[in-house]
Design a protein around this nucleic acid. Sequence first.
DNA 1: GACCTGCTGCGGGTTG
Length: 709
Amino acid sequence: MSSFSLLSPNIQKKIWEMRWERFTPIQDNAIPIISNTTKDVVISSGTASGKTEAAFLPILSAIEESGQKALKVIYISPLKALINNQFERIEKLSSYCHLAIHKWHGDVGQNKKKKFIENPTGILQITPESIESLFINRTTYLSKIFGEVEFIVIDEIHAFLDNERGVQLRSLLSRMQPYCHKRPRIIGLSATIDNFDFVKQWICPDDPEQVEIIQANGYEKETRYYLMHFDTEKNAQLPLELYEDMRDLTKENSSIIFCNSRSLVEEATVMLNRLAEKDGLGETYYPHHSSIDKKEREYVEKMMQETTVPKGVVATSSLELGIDIGNVDLVVQLDSTYSVSSLKQRLGRSGRSTGSPHMLQLYSTTAPSLLSSLAVMELVLEGWVEPAKGYALPYDILFHQVLSLLQEYNGIKREELLELLGENAVFRKLPKEKMELLLAHMHEADMIERIQGSGEYIVGIEGERVLRSKEFYAVFMTPEEYEVVSSNRKIGTLHKGIDISEGDHIILAGRLWRILQIDNKRNKVYVEKTVGAKPPRFLGEGGEIHPRIREKMMEILCSDEEFPYLDGKAQEILEDMRTIYRIKHIQPKQRIIKKQREDQVFYTFTGTIIVGTLWRMLQVLGVKAKIGNLDTLTLPSEYNLLQVLKTIQEKDWDVQELLAATPAEQMFFSKFSPYLPQELIADMHIAHQLDIEETIRYLKRYEFVVLGE
DNA sequence: GACCTGCTGCGGGTTG
């Protein structure tokens, strides 16, 4: 235990008390670097590898004394639930150190917040949105809170790398800096990710090379996995045999059953409980997704932690991040995930104790889903994950942060504002003239005003309206919802915009309900218990699929490789899909266009952004195409597609042409984009949705083969 | 062709 001697006596005492025999590999690697250097650190490894302790043991040792007088550590989490989980964990570790630990998020009462503000010491656990609220509502306390901070720990940092929420958080970290006596060290905790260069840049843009990456060396748990296929007709309910198989598998094991939609979670829960009832066991499966009431979800989480008999939780990605539901034996994935990192994270949730293997059961219900499941699983086995790439162009968050900054400074000179933005890690690279354009636009719309005389900017009348809303703090979009209520008990929510009527029967939170009344004014739906119902629909958007997954699918189609983890039916379906590729000797460097009687289908096998760009290019050339399942392009057979693709390749594309062909309702859209001038929305659309260079490279890289009827 | 995340201050009412 070489790391042991680096820790303070009180922490050592705690470790003796907990009877730890050894540190995990990640802890052994992290403790010396956090203790003996002043570097920023990323600790990257799977769930349950002891990352929290790897960071907090040395941090608590370092701040044990000074932390009793001032706030020394800010722990930032993407989830309130994670803060609540980690609160107990960190409190336990620090029980001999006399350090205060404070929770601050939307569910924490005003009294506790007031108490902390008056005497900020020790450790603060907080969400990005609540940090935003400090800058807006507690401006006079910022020096007192941030002045002595030495460590900023960011949990699940991978959840912040590619989205607007991460831009907001990174901006807030930059905004903290002027209040801190010295730059706090940033410690990121992450699931396994790729592209560490990007992460280093994110953490410390001024000196990325000083950031140290710590990974567990080599040791990986044994993984057992199996894929079964149950062919299902389009839009039909999943076959009973599938549910029976799933029931058998989860009868004697605790499990998480991941589904790709909330509706399916509801359907599967009811079906599995019916089967369990036949065994005389009653309710042993519980649904978990974001449209189920929070209290109900917390009950399920707690019950999973404490149960001694095998139970199953049927979930969406709501259980993908580190919410503690205890250990489960088995993870089931119903149809392919949309990303490799998602499957990897889900897989990591199985394995009851350190000795027992990860267990994963994949099911597929359609041929394309089988192929995708296989590709994603093979990429997990190869150790590949989607690389972090960031949020392309953050003008929407710039708008948001300008309002928040004006509130924070309560009047600021134009030059000072531009200087602050120029120092901000996420806005510094934006062109000056675009920033000026945004300020002029905000001024014109009364979002901001200039005080006569001093010329300082302040929040304008319209800006107040945006800033003073509780919707302001979070930068991501949320759908409008009804609250579903039964005799004064909250059950969950339904999306507005989905067709529902009084008298409809729905499944929600694993139970069957009849809709009594829809109150559009109060956004409430009143229900009563019933029998016989279908799950409701929810709104959703298609996401982005990385090209590598599609390429892998094509490689699988073109090879003879056998996958021993497939059942007979899956092998049969795969062989079926492979036939035409074998007969025509198709290679992975080729892509095929199947001519049919009335149309032709182009099997692109590349990522969504490239297909989207290609589709827009076809439109500019007057070629009408439809994007279908698996990102295929279907177009009338009269076109000579080979000729068209050649034209696209040789044309000198101007992105403005593609933009001009894009109707307003298909332009980039986010929570704050409606407040931007057209020019900046267009810039964002280009940066986020179009990739001419990659699309041309794709066309050059592959050979396209036309197959007849 | 989907999923997930977050939130102030204040006024008015209710509950222990």
